[in-house]
Design a protein around this nucleic acid. Sequence first.
RNA 1: GCCCCUGUAGCUUAACGGAUAGAGCAAGAGUCUCCUAAAUUCUAGAUACAGGUUCGACUCCUGUCAGGGGCACCA
Length: 553
Amino acid sequence: MIRDEIFNLIEKSIKILQKEKVFPKFDIPGIKIECPKERVHGDYSTNVAIVLSKKIKKDPMETAKTLASRLQVLGSGLFEKVEVKKPGFINFFLSKEYLQSQVKEILKRGEKFGQLKIGKNKKVQVEFISANPTGSLHIGNGRGAFWGDSLSNVLEKAGYRVTREYYIDDAKNSLQIRELGKTALGKGRTYLTKDLEIKIKKLKPKLKKITDFGEAGHLLAQEIQKDIKDLIENKLKIKFNVWASEEKLYKKKKIEKILSWLKKKEFVYQKEKAQWIKTLEFGDSKDWVVVRTTGEPTYFLSDIAYHKDKINGGFKKIIDIWGADHQAHVSKMKAAMKILGFKGDFDVLITQMVSLKKGKISKRKGEIITLESLVDEVGLDAVRFFYLVKSLDTQMEFDVELAKERSAKSPVFYIQYANARIHSILAKSQIPSTKFQTNSKWGPQKREGGGRVEVQISNSKLKLLTHPSELNLIKQLIRFPEIIEDTAKDYQVQRIPQYAIDLATVFHQFYRDCRVLSEDGPLTQARLGLILATKQVIKNTLNLMGISAPEKM
RNA sequence: GCCCCUGUAGCUUAACGGAUAGAGCAAGAGUCUCCUAAAUUCUAGAUACAGGUUCGACUCCUGUCAGGGGCACCA
């Protein structure tokens, strides 16, 4: 990554300047390197000089100039120029040579382009959706679903070992399952929908022999869960590694075990005939009941047992994605994780609510809108994109009409169209497209029979890529690994679709300005190399989001 | 009453404390003898309000106003 290279150069320069006693001794502060919004400010810029000048009590501009002249020398070949601007920014302009060489790098790495090692192969668990097995997934669940899936993809790309996990609240003695059981046995109407009525009818023979609400509810919940699993795997195309069950935690006595451990360590006490956990001492606003007066454990206790299981799984990072209605649960669980002595990262992401902007999607009045009907209506690619493009922290209004649009109006098609254009050029170039897809090796390739033209991209040909639109495209391509790094660190997945749009934009501009197939043989080859690299990065980006890259549109 | 999230252009929204707040839709004006015009170029338009911290604030802090969610021996 160029950003890392610049970082190293800055560090090196500072050390040299300290040795020469131009700078006094100090620890190098956190350096920030970013892509400026304004192109006139360079391809990358840093504020080190401003930060440094405080430490060494010098004019930031002067510090910047001293540093910049050193960087210019050290980074020769990498930069076309290094500039100092106003308050003390140092701006870097990448050299053509460096950019041209990156096309080769991207093609070399192929699908692996963007694969980082910052995760150091550490185990991460991402738990998401975990909807109650009492009905279908609704549009709110979609947020956690696609966000969790894409975040997992990003973390994998960053070099973590990711486990995707779904937790099923199917415990027989939980109140919701008993409520469901009442409904199953015709003694209540909670959760009742037309869909559920059909399921209950199907289960009639089995239900006849059951009198216990918990048993009946569990049976029905299993049926519901089958549908949910089918939907997730086949329609939403999300593959979970683990489907955890609350009921199993009870069966394996894990709830009992954790309770006795908590008691032994005196984290649990008796008050008003119930048992409370001392979450107040660990950062929450109050203590909570873990065993009711009736002697039954609460959901919180089983959740603690569940998280104990996660810790035992050896995860260094545990991420839970919950809906807005679980917001109060965050501080409870964080306190519980401290009680359990978890030393890794525990992050809880809360998804704000989802509503529909407009559209005729609700076919039956009064029923909640299911995620399935939304996918049917809009298509998976568009659904995934629209869920991902918004920050989790804001409430989301799903624009059904825009998402359904198969035209320039929809950003999804805008991105896919860029890919289709590339394929169209490749098709016209008479080179079999499969060759480009499978062959990621660098260098002149053997000629196939039939006298077909082949791409033989060499450094000398890449030097022909000098048009501003070409260089601009390359600059955008090489940002991909940075996007992965940033997103793996701050979980702001909306950066990915945003990047995809930017990438498509610069490609469309390139397409306008530079004709790929021309009489100029070497230039044609160089540009074919560039669009191959672009195709690869678009593909890699879409893969992160789980969106397809059709060849024709 | 307390806690969490959010107030950015007519609409949907973006912006690790950075430079002239970036897109898309909608509105107006251009661009196809040329690899898909499903594209592209230009025009107009925004940080709820009041303070504070900082060389520098949409971003951090305080207060006000507005919207959503949560404050169970439900999950």
